[in-house]
Amino acid sequence: MATDNRPLSPHLQVYRWQITSVLSILHRITGVGLAVGAIVFAYWLNAAGYGADAFARAQAVLGTWVGVVLLAGWTFALFYHLLNGIRHLFWDAGMGFELSQVRASGWTVVVGAAVLTAITWAVVWNTAGGAG
């Protein structure tokens, strides 16, 4: 039997948006985003291994406003994926499955990631004078 033309069960678009599904999708999106960030991280380290000029160029690229915006996005993605990953580990251990707990931990993750991102960049701004 052909497997490419079978009727499909209802998919994403028919369901109401809710925090549980949105945060689950966001975990995957931030994960993929961080994989892209890991490639930039590899470029940065390899530039350092290549020499002073290459490293200075990498630092300058990351210090442009485009670089800073991307780095801020990766900072949020890292904190979100980190905090939500901890939330997943608690689930793996069999804890926190009540709907009220799931909502509370979800909002904690979102607010926590936003606050930690803001604190991180406030520190960068104060110590590096906005040089990224």
Binding site: A48, G51, A52, F55, A56, Q59, G63, T75, L78, F79, L82, G85, I86, T120, V123, V124, T127, A128, A131, G132
Partner: peptide, 21 residues
């Protein structure tokens, strides 16, 4: 990656704008 990730954020902040030296 939980401890390593948290440590890396501190490391990255301290290295913002650093030269190779």
């Amino acid at each position: 990656l939980v401890p390593l990730g948290i440590w890396f954020v501190f490391a990255a902040v301290s290295l913002a704008g650093a030269n190779l030296g």
